[in-house]
Amino acid sequence: MVNGDREIDEQAGRAARRKAFVALAIAALVIGALVYWRPSGLDLWIKAAHVIAVISWMAGLLYLPRLFIYHTDAPPGSDRSETFKVMEGRLLGVIMRPAMIATWLLGLWLAYSSFGFAAGWLWAKILAVVLLTGVHDRFARAVRSFAADERTHSARYWRLMNEVPTALMIVIVVLVIVKPF
């Protein structure tokens, strides 16, 4: 029965990846069409897509360490542990990674087209996003470790790590809205 369950999980995973790929392809086509035709409100469309990508990426950055907390307590090889592996892998690969890439590409477009990379606050924001990308990379390495049944950190560590994306998000939002320098 375990092999049957694994086969069903793999089919579901392939279907989820296919759906994510189709959604990304459609989004890329729409954005490409907008850039090509350059409608009068192009930057607003790009900004809307950027905000959607940021929200998706942040949702994953806030949820993934919660999964790690529960996964840390699950015995390696248990059904619960195997379920967390699937959840973590799909969250990272299907939602977080594409959202991070879209966030960067659209954000760089906006930084160039709207500010010419000339604003001081913008460089501080880019630094904070680089740090957020480092957190994303740290979480991606943890997904690989959990997939190999390695538990190198405690649940307490992951509770603390859960706060890092929130702190960086606050800095980024303040920089974008207040533009302190």
Rank of each mutant, 00 (worst) to 15 (best):
G120N: 14
A111G: 11
P98I: 07
L91K: 10
R156D: 00
E150M: 15
W104H: 11
H136D: 10
E88S: 14
H153V: 10
L92V: 09
E88C: 08
V135C: 11
W121A: 02
A118C: 06
L91E: 12
R159F: 01
V130P: 00
A128N: 04
A142D: 11
A155M: 03
R156Y: 00
L91H: 09
T133G: 13
Y112L: 09
V135M: 10
H153A: 15
T103G: 06
R151T: 13
K125E: 07
S154F: 03
V129M: 14
G120W: 14
S154I: 13
L91N: 12
M100D: 04
V164S: 08
F115G: 00
A111H: 04
A140V: 06
E150L: 15
W158N: 05
S113Y: 09
A142V: 08
V135E: 14
Y157R: 14
H136F: 13
W121H: 01
M96V: 10
E150Y: 15
A140E: 14
Y112W: 15
G134V: 02
F115S: 01
W123K: 01
R151V: 13
F117A: 01
A128R: 10
G120H: 09
V164G: 04
V130T: 04
R90H: 09
A118T: 07
G116I: 09
A148I: 14
R159H: 02
S114L: 15
T133L: 12
W123H: 07
S145V: 06
E163S: 02
P98N: 14
R90F: 00
